[in-house]
């Protein structure tokens, strides 16, 4: 009796959050799905005929879409490679016995707290500008021709900016994982004459594998939706060289007023994210049992 009562109470305590999220997720998603079947232009909102899968065929056969899909993948993988690789090295470095390790830690994690628009504009103008940027001036100083980052290598520029923002996240999580490794194991391996490299390969890396998985999955979710960094630096250009799916959907809706095609793009993005999400949910769910 008492438990029944308390379960009822528990359910009513959870209800507001569950209902709020259910509405937030289901209603707009259903509407996106509905819009994606309409010929709906913002410039002529009176006539919205049903067009079936036409928006999808338009969106999926648009060469810009293929470019955007490729860019999205390159962006995600590029940032992951830099942040995981750099994060492991940085975590190993910060795990050493060094003077002022706490201050170095503060310096290393700082970029994570910089809002995307600030990070992107500071890098675009003050670091990567070919004439006035610090990188350009440094290259000129040693006699190299400066690169016009945003024009010549727009996607690489965005990868570098985003990697700078996410490197601290990877480092912090990998370091947390590294510090939970008991030193007994390492010492035992050292006694057996194992070198630093084989200790890293056979003991440290396997220990960090779970944390690495979590970093990859969580970052991928966020990286699929990169938007502000593109908006304030390259506007997706030149051409569509730095347009990702998120930016393409935004462009379809805002610049071309094509609600139907934009909605179809939104659904495609949801499907892509879901593929990753399934793995993430599984990884975290497993941890919940442990």
């Amino acid at each position: 009796m008492a438990t029944q009562h308390s379960q009822k109470l528990a359910r009513s305590m959870m209800a507001p959050s569950v209902i709020a999220l259910l509405i937030w997720m289901a209603v707009p998603l259903a509407m996106t799905l509905y819009y994606s079947t309409l010929g709906y232009s913002l410039y002529n909102p009176i006539s919205t005929p049903f067009v079936g899968i036409e928006n999808y065929t338009y969106f999926l056969t648009d060469p810009t879409f293929i470019a955007a899909l490729t860019n999205t993948m390159v962006l995600v993988v590029g940032v992951l490679v830099i942040t995981i690789g750099g994060g492991i090295l940085l975590a190993l470095l910060l795990d050493q016995d060094i003077y002022g390790v706490n201050i170095v830690r503060l310096l290393v994690i700082a970029p994570f707290f910089v809002m995307p628009t600030v990070a992107a504009l500071v890098w675009k103008n003050m670091m990567m500008n070919p004439v006035y940027g610090v990188i350009g001036q440094s290259m000129s100083a040693i006699g190299l021709a400066p690169i016009d980052w945003m024009t010549d290598v727009p996607l690489l520029s965005i990868i570098l900016i985003v990697a700078w923002q996410w490197l601290p996240f990877a480092t912090l999580i990998l370091l947390t994982s590294l510090q939970s490794l008991s030193s007994d194991q390492k010492e035992a391996a050292e006694m057996d004459g194992a070198g630093a490299l084989s200790i890293f390969w056979y003991i440290t890396l396997p220990h960090m594998s779970r944390a690495i998985t979590v970093v990859i999955l969580i970052q991928t979710i966020f990286l699929l939706s990169i938007f502000a960094e593109i908006l304030v630096t390259t506007n997706g250009g030149p051409g569509a060289q730095s347009t990702n799916i998120t930016y393409l959907v935004y462009q379809q809706a805002i610049s071309f007023g094509d609600i139907g095609a934009a909605s179809a793009g939104g659904i495609v993005a949801v499907i892509l994210a879901n593929i990753v999400a399934i793995f993430l949910i599984k990884a975290i769910g497993k941890n919940l049992d442990a």
Partner: peptide, 16 residues
Amino acid sequence: MLSTKMLPAVGVYIPI
């Protein structure tokens, strides 16, 4: 609940 966090913003952007 966590899975709702993984819904990309553009999936619900147009209706919102």
